[in-house]
């Protein structure tokens, strides 16, 4: 118990310090950090399903794209205030997420991956082709969230979103619902026999994860001023996946740290042009093959705290 308080305390301090960033870094670095936080939220949302519930899905990025377009199209065509777009996006992705979860309630492993992958591709293809509405690959221009553009304000907005998702997922993870997810991850049939309604748990988990992604995607699109189908591509899914694994899948903070660190590294490697993605992928391959618990496991080695079930990684 004390360990958990300690971790939360450290977390809060770290975030507090981090929030002073804008005073010390350039506008461009802030831009990079904002992107890093976006990926951190996506990684946490994916980790919720993949790490905590053991459901390796490939639909994460697609929900971000869905949220971005839902919000953008809603605002552009209804004339409602901008913030309502975010609410609309969260609602839409939540509903679709629940539907997908219900659809996949009996699927596992490879088949689950394939169906969620197909879902992601269907979403991307529809967005790309319905160009009368979405302008296809050429992106949909969406208005900014803030009436006056300020990178600093966007930074705080993203940081707030991050804090909500981080502590939200931690809280759920520790609740009865979280326990049920864990039970399903370990042994689905045993969980069923214990009276856990696996279908319901999975549906709700899918919905929550999708909502977080949808909201993140919408916010991101409004920051960039642009929503593109690329947001929901396999390439993006790869980035989310690699950030989560490198950070530590199944841990509560690992994915977020992985995301920010890798995004900053990605930016630094930018000058190496074509090589940076290769370096990334090779690193991830190394981690998955030799350090499946991610870099978080290194931290665990130094600390002699008892490992709680949350930080047990999938192999």
């Amino acid at each position: 118990m004390a360990a958990k308080f300690k971790l939360n305390f450290i977390l809060i301090c770290a975030i507090g310090l981090f929030s002073f960033c804008p005073n010390f870094v350039s506008a461009y670095s802030l831009h990079v950090l904002i992107i890093g936080i976006y990926y951190a939220v996506m990684a946490l949302a994916w980790n919720f399903l993949a790490g905590q519930a053991g459901l390796l899905v490939f639909s994460q990025a697609a929900f971000a794209a869905m949220g971005a377009y839902a919000s953008g199209l809603f605002i552009l065509h209804s004339g409602c205030p901008i913030w309502s777009g975010l609410i609309f996006a969260t609602a839409v992705t939540g509903i679709v997420g629940a539907l997908l979860g219900a659809l996949c309630r009996k699927l596992n492993g490879t088949y689950l991956a394939l169906v969620t992958l197909s879902f992601a591709e269907i979403v991307r293809i529809v967005i790309t082709n319905e160009d009368r509405w979405t302008r296809g690959t050429f992106g949909l221009q969406v208005p900014g969230l803030l009436t006056e553009y300020s990178k600093v304000h966007y930074f705080y907005l993203f940081l707030s979103l991050f804090v909500i998702v981080l502590f939200g997922s931690k809280w759920i993870g520790r609740s009865r619902f979280g326990f049920k997810m864990l039970a399903i991850k370990d042994d689905s049939d045993a969980a069923e026999s214990l009276g856990i309604n696996t279908a319901r748990v999975r549906t709700i988990a899918f919905a929550l994860s999708a909502m977080a992604s949808g909201l993140a995607g919408a916010t991101y699109a409004h920051y960039l001023g642009l929503a593109t189908p690329e947001m929901g591509s396999l390439g993006e899914m790869f980035l989310i996946l690699s950030m989560t694994y490198v950070g530590g899948i199944g841990t509560s903070v690992g994915p977020a740290v992985g995301a920010i660190v890798l995004e900053v590294a990605y930016e630094q490697l930018r000058d190496f042009g074509q090589y940076h993605l290769l370096v990334f992928a090779a690193l991830t391959l190394f981690v998955v093959r030799f350090m499946p618990a991610g870099f978080s496991s290194l931290v665990g080695v130094f600390r002699t705290l008892k490992k709680d079930p949350e930080s047990k990684a999938t192999t």
Binding site: S26, A27, Y28, H31, F138, G139, L224, G225, L226, T228, E230, M231
Partner: peptide
């Protein structure tokens, strides 16, 4: 467009 936005952003800021 997403790469283009990032490219211009970098050049400008």
């Amino acid at each position: 467009p997403e790469k283009a936005t990032a490219a211009f952003e970098k050049l400008a800021t």
